[in-house]
Every structure is written in C-alpha cells, then in structure tokens.
Amino acid sequence: MPVSYLISLDERSSDRTGGGDQAAIRLINRLLAEGVPVQWAQEEILAGERSYPAGTFFLSLPFKIESKIPCDVIVLWLEQQARREGLLCIQKTAEQLSTRSIALVPPRIALFYDHTTYDNALMHFLAFRGMGFEAALVNAEDLLQDDDDPDSILARSNVFVMPGGSMHFSSFASEEEALQGLENIRRFIYKGGGYIGVCAGATEALMGNPHPDLNIVDASYRADWFESRDAIAGDWEWRSLIGPLYLEIVNPSHPIMFGYSQGSPSLSSGPLVRMDYFGGPSIF
C-alpha cells in the first residue's frame, strides 16, 4: 500500500514561537543527511480532497537508504519529531503521488568569513546550522584553490554565501589574487553552484557596481545614496529604514522565489514575506 508524507511550508507551527518553517526545514535536512529521497514538487499536488501548492516537499514509501535503517523506523521518527515540534505542516496520504518534482540534494554551504564580514558571517553560520544545513567558514585564501581540485572548498560545496560587511575582496593580498578568487567564484556559479549575497555581498554581484567585483547580475544600486550628506537627498534616509519589511512576491514561479505561493495566509510564505532590513543599498 503506497504511503507518502507531505511537508508544506505554507502552514504555521502550532507553537507560540511561530517557528514551523524552520523546524520543518530541520527535519528535511535530517532526512537528506540520512540519504532519504525527498522530492520538491514543481506543481500543485492533489491528494484526496486536498491540494498542496507547488514547492511542497514529500517522500514516498517504500525507500532504501545506505545505512539500512528501515523506512518505517524513519517515518516513525519523523512523526515523533513533528509532534514534538508542534508542526501542522506534515500530512500523511495513502495515495501514490504523481507530480513533476525535483530530487533534493543536501546543501553544502561555503560561507565567507574574515575581518570584512564583522559578526554577520557568524550570525549566518549559526542560523544555517540551527536549521540543519552543512556550512563551512572560508576565507580569501581558500578561494584561491582551483575548483577542479576535488579537495578545494568550492569543489566540496554547492552554495557560496557572501554576507554583509565591507569590500570583501580587499582581503586578497594582491590585485592578481583578487582577480583569481573572483574568477573561481564565477566558474563555480557557471558550473551550477548557487550564490547568495547579503547587503555588501549582494552589491558585489551586480554588473552596475563600480568596483571590479563579480559582475554576474544585470542590476545596479543607488550609489548616490552614499554620496550626499543631505538627509533630504537620501544619504541618511536609508540608514533610518531599519526594521521588518513585508515583501510582495510578484512572480512566485521564478526559480529564486519558487515555493512562495500566492494567497497563503502565512507571512513567512507569501504573497507577503517578512524580511528584517538593517539599512543597505537599494538595488534596481
């Protein structure tokens, strides 16, 4: 008899902390770490009298994993963890699911960290580890390793994260080394690696950036906000915009925003998504 478990981030936890999404992601990462095949639905799922939005995660029984732990033991643990976390987002169905989906690959994160990232990198590191992601701290010297070397940090990662801070690529000992490090990151991205840039890490990816950075995103930023000391002109206006923002997801089918469905009542999963803004440049 086919059995599937669906994990949707569109529903909230029943606990008072509202941490249902993060708890669900922790469970998914634990499953992936054990080699459990978890799928990511690319279209709506119909199961019984209920529909689940695109972006829902699911696993179907039976499955076999390398450790040879029986799948019924795995799902018993999953049910126990869901009850312990107070999760409402895990549902069981006796139907065989047939939908277009992608098999998840465990994220292996390379997180840049040195004096230019201040405390930002460490806060990212703790947040990633808290949700069960594998993350390694790397520096400029690590980025000089050729990604064709299987022992290099980029070869062992599938996501590179550049946090906020100041002029990260000034950390290289010379301009020649900076150009080599930038080229290695570009090659990593062009070969399928993911890039996440936060604040300064985002501007360093822009083609409209006046500095010789990555230049991989066709966008620019409001550099004039940094040039004037006149509050009316905007220099100090962006610094005062610190706090929670609610973003409207206008294209939830875009690969970057996929999984944030329209019409959801949850502020964590669209169409309004909360983001904590700490004063950074406006990208356009």
Rank of each mutant, 00 (worst) to 15 (best):
A205K: 00
H211I: 01
E175D: 10
V75N: 01
T117N: 01
S67D: 09
A155D: 02
F133C: 07
V105T: 11
Y190Q: 12
S67W: 01
C71Y: 13
A33P: 00
L154M: 01
L97H: 03
I65E: 02
P210S: 03
T99S: 06
M167F: 04
R129W: 07
Y190E: 13
S60Q: 11
S264H: 10
D218H: 07
L61E: 12
S8R: 14
G280D: 14
G130M: 01
L46T: 14
R229E: 13
L143G: 07
F172N: 02
C199I: 02
V3C: 15
R30D: 15
L59T: 07
L272S: 10
S170M: 12
R84D: 10
Q91A: 11
G201I: 08
I45Q: 01
F128D: 03
A205P: 00
A205L: 02
D119A: 06
A202R: 02
W40F: 15
M275H: 14
M162K: 02
V38G: 03
E141T: 12
I196Q: 00
R186S: 06
S98L: 08
E95Q: 12
I283V: 14
L143H: 06
W238L: 11
L272T: 05
Y52E: 06
A110D: 09
G181E: 03
I283Q: 03
M167V: 08
A202D: 01
L206Y: 01
F58K: 05
P212W: 05
T117S: 07
G165S: 05
E11L: 14
G165M: 05
Q96D: 13
L46V: 14
A33E: 11
G181A: 04
P271M: 08
S13P: 00
L182P: 04
G279N: 09
D224V: 05
R274N: 10
G19D: 15
G193T: 07
G259D: 06
N251H: 14
D235V: 06
K68L: 13
R156I: 02
A140C: 14
I283L: 12
L97C: 02
A94I: 03
L6E: 08
L31C: 04
A178E: 14
T203R: 03
D230W: 10
N251A: 10
S261I: 04
G35E: 00
D276W: 12
A103P: 04
L267P: 03
R129Q: 13
R156F: 03
V198A: 12
F57Q: 01
V273H: 08
G18N: 09
V75S: 01
E44T: 15
R50Y: 02
R108F: 02
A202Q: 13
C199E: 02
F57I: 04
N184F: 06
A94W: 08
F57Y: 15
V217F: 08
I242C: 14
A127G: 07
M1D: 13
